[in-house]
Simulated assay, not measured.
Amino acid sequence: MAYTIPVERTKAAKSKPSEDQLVFGKYYTDHMFILDYDTENGWHDPRITPYQPLVLDPAAKVFHYGQSIFEGLKAYRTEDGRILMFRPDMNAKRLNQSNYRMCIPPIDEEMFHEALQALLQVDQDWIPSTEGTSLYIRPFVIATQPNLGVAPSTKYRFMIILSPVGSYYAEGIHPVKIFVESEYVRTVKGGTGMAKTAGNYAASLVAQQEANKVGYTQVLWLDALHGKYIEEVGSMNVFFKINGIVVTPALTGSILNGITRDSVIHLLQEWGVPVEERQVSIDELYKAHLDGTLEEAFGTGTAAVISPIGEMRWGDKVIPINNGETGEISSKVYDTITGIQYGTIEDPFNWVVELK
């Protein structure tokens, strides 16, 4: 099905920031995509408009009951001028998985892809070309029905906004320090942990602040039931290389099914590196540190692709990893995924989608 998406172009184009000044989430392009929903018409009225503030009723359910979900992906400009997206089909599927968990009607995946293509066509001049830069794409859905009853909304708005961003590692990839959180929990099996919903991130902020106060960049979450099994690191999935085997927490319903996570698993399998999806406890990691078999650790996510972990703090125990240096697997995965994203190396998995 081909959708007609009308475009209202801005009459007041913004000045584009210098590419060497780009940071994450500060600048936004001239246009945005909008799609509305109500129970009478379903999803309808797709359109591209000038980027502008929203007007919402104070009783809109998103403000009171948190019905909101989002996605995150990027567009990349290659050396020969092509524009590529990385695995947008996975974002479309995960968006609807989040929609289901939050009682939001599913969005046709073809509409999702056509909206991405149309909006990128309009604002493609905003896609930076400096090495390491990209255009961050933020699709999201909010509940807009003005009603204070605790029930799913009857009205929603799906939107896509775009933001040019700089290189996550302006001075080169480097390891981060991680604080193992033992007091707060992020979510629990049966909760909303597998959904990319705003409340999950709001719940993480207090622990993140406290970790920052003691000099740690991110929080490593433990499971809510036993308080010992590894879940996620901040906004990233996490991997550990123990005695030659790469392990990552299994998807049991309380952590996000990361697209970069999935890509890393595919690559490791392709390279013949042993990889396991299973429960991994903080006690196992500490024991591996003591006996010298904890060889490497890294987080995975859209923003950084790979974040090597150089140190973890668990209570009064400090766990250095690989002498605080980036490991061989981390480097190889980072170089391979970014090479595919920017079109500098072959894409054997057909992960990239070119702007038409």
Rank of each mutant, 00 (worst) to 15 (best):
S15F: 07
I173S: 02
G193C: 06
M90P: 00
G253H: 06
K61S: 10
P128I: 13
I245T: 14
L84V: 04
G132L: 12
A170S: 13
V273H: 04
I107E: 08
L267Q: 07
D45R: 08
T302S: 15
D335L: 00
P50L: 00
G215K: 01
N96S: 12
P146A: 15
Q145C: 10
N350T: 02
Q67V: 00
A59K: 08
E277Y: 07
I69A: 04
F240Q: 08
V165L: 09
D347N: 04
S163Y: 02
V273Y: 05
Y27S: 08
I282D: 05
I282M: 08
V246S: 12
I265W: 10
L95I: 01
E8S: 11
D89K: 02
G253M: 03
R157I: 05
L22A: 06
P58Q: 12
V219L: 14
A151F: 03
A115D: 12
K189N: 02
D262F: 02
W351S: 01
E270W: 05
Y216I: 05
K213F: 12
R94F: 09
S235C: 15
E109Q: 12
V353I: 11
I104N: 10
G42F: 09
R77H: 04
K16H: 13
Q341G: 00
D80Q: 11
L95W: 12
N350D: 14
D262M: 06
E109L: 02
E183V: 12
E311R: 06
P58S: 07
E276D: 14
V185E: 06
L135E: 07
S15C: 01
L35R: 11
Y37G: 10
K16R: 09
E19I: 09
A2V: 13
S235G: 14
G190P: 04
D262L: 01
E181G: 02
W126D: 09
T144P: 11
V275A: 13
M85L: 15
T252W: 11
I319C: 05
E325M: 05
S331M: 12
S68Q: 15
I107C: 07
Q145M: 10
R87S: 11
D262Q: 13
N243G: 13
V246H: 03
I173R: 09
H44W: 09
Q67C: 08
Y184D: 10
F70T: 11
D30F: 03
E354A: 12
D38W: 06
D291Y: 01
D125Q: 14
Y342H: 09
E181S: 04
R47T: 09
I107F: 06
E110Y: 08
Y76W: 04
P105D: 12
T39S: 13
I173T: 01
D283L: 02
L290E: 13
K356R: 13
Q21M: 08
Y334C: 10
